[in-house]
Amino acid sequence: MAKRRPPIDIKAQPGFRGAAYICVILLYIPIIMLMILSLNSGEAVGKFQGVSLRWYATALQNKEFYSAARNTITITVFATIVSTILATLAAIGTTRVKPWRGLGAAFMVINLPLMVPEIITAVATLSFFALLAGALGLNFGIGNLILAHTVFCVPFAYMPIRARLEDMDLTLESAAADLYATPWNAFRRITLPLLVPGIASGGALAFITSFDDFTITQLVAGPGQTTLPLFIWGQTRKPMTPEINAISTILLLVSIVFVASSFAIARRRK
């Protein structure tokens, strides 16, 4: 066997430490500033006058904020669940079948939305719903948004699930079959439990993608279908108060809790 060279310790390279600090600062300082300023007791966004939860109170009493939050949760929860289920089925269908001619094409079709600029998808989705409404008189209300979100979330959910399936030792499924497990039982007792971390990360990705989608939602949303990102965008058009910081902080905390718990599930399962 060839002698293994000791791995290069990147931490010992000159300038590494400085560069790392700069990256971390650039990434997180604006977010931390936003959170600190949400505790401002004054009226101005830029000038810190004292600590208070005043703007959280204002935000939580804002009817528009509630309506936006309700819309976002409805859309995101539905879109996450449906797209994760679809992505799981697609991942099984593209990894646990005999290779067929259209497999590469199917893979492309599933992942294409990641490559298409979002504004294009947005315009296309808008035209599609306009066509539905015009030609067939169909309008699902908030269902339009749920449908749109579900569709663009599928590839995000698909990738980690597929990766997990591809990493899985196929002899485990053979062993289950050898031990009298029917294909359904082998899936339920072996494949699915081992797939949970992949489904959790897929679901988390879909959730975040749907939760903060702006471009597509902006074009597709009808009146009364304002979501949180649209609401925040609307706030920045008015004279700004620290309320917007408070709202953003709330969103951030929700995201952090969600992502952290899905990571925790993935870790525990490993």
Partner: peptide, 20 residues
């Protein structure tokens, strides 16, 4: 017959124990 209908069991080279 598919494997789950055969009264025959296998010890795999990599053991294939169910990790969960």
């Amino acid at each position: 017959l598919p494997p789950f209908k055969r009264p025959v069991n296998t010890v795999f080279q990599n053991y294939a124990l169910f990790p969960h």
